[in-house]
């Protein structure tokens, strides 16, 4: 195999190298790649929004399905533009109030579902040492999150056990991810050595 003659592969390869140059230090090549990525991705994002939101969620329902309910978010969206004008910019608080209300409102039942699921999963369906450790771990972790009691004496000791469980869990998650991240890097190196330089197959 020989070095690639494809113009687009060259672009992808040079941009890849430009990003890696950040590992040495901030430099013009990285800056170029960084600003380019931000600029292009926002342009791409606009196109996605246009296609997925304006056409699919506003224009089509309004024109073809005669779904006039869409006018409400349309109006809320337009109210956001009030921020361009200083004397009416307070109107943008209305859509913000709506989205914050929707977010918090939806989270209440979903937090409950999650809460129930966690408690359910902690119920020991069989009796063994593992179940006992899980019960101890869950309870001591919860004690660590106790805010209205000072972590002294017995509570302090239990919360210490809790933080130990938490650190073991974090370590496990850390170790679990390492190889996945290394394989991402290997993937990029493969692209450079095989697709671009043609050194390996």
């Amino acid at each position: 195999m020989a070095i690639s003659t494809n113009f687009w592969i060259w672009i992808a390869a040079l941009l890849t190298l430009a990003i890696y140059s950040f590992l040495y230090k901030d430099n013009p090549f990285y800056k170029f790649a960084e600003y380019l990525l931000v600029g292009i991705s926002i342009g791409y994002g606009i196109s996605i929004y246009w296609h997925n939101t304006i056409i699919t969620k506003v224009y089509n329902p309004l024109v073809y399905d005669k779904n006039f309910l869409v006018l409400i978010p349309l109006l809320l969206g337009l109210l956001m533009f009030s921020r361009f004008f200083k004397n009416v910019s307070y109107l943008s608080r209305i859509p913000i109030a709506f989205v914050v209300g929707a977010g918090t409102g939806l989270s209440v039942p979903s937090s409950f579902e999650f809460l129930f699921k966690q408690i359910y999963a902690t119920m020991p369906l069989k009796l063994d040492i593992g179940s006992l450790i899980i019960v101890v771990g869950v309870i001591s972790t919860l004690v660590y999150f106790f805010f209205s009691l000072e972590h002294k004496g017995f509570v302090g000791k239990v919360s210490k056990v809790g933080i130990t469980f938490i650190m073991v869990a974090f370590g496990a998650a850390f170790g679990y991810t390492i190889m996945a991240r290394v394989s991402l890097f290997i993937g990029r190196i493969q692209f450079l050595l095989s697709d671009w330089l043609g050194i390996i197959k």
């Binding site: 999650f114 809460l115 966690q118 408690i119 999963a121 902690t122 593992g130 450790i133 899980i134 019960v135 101890v136 771990g137 869950v138 309870i139 001591s140 972790t141 919860l142 660590y144 999150f145 809790g162 469980f165 938490i166 073991v168 869990a169 496990a172 998650a173």
Partner: peptide, 12 residues
Amino acid sequence: VPQMAAKRGIGL
């Protein structure tokens, strides 16, 4: 076991 326990505690 320990990972799951802490994860559930944090989740709660």
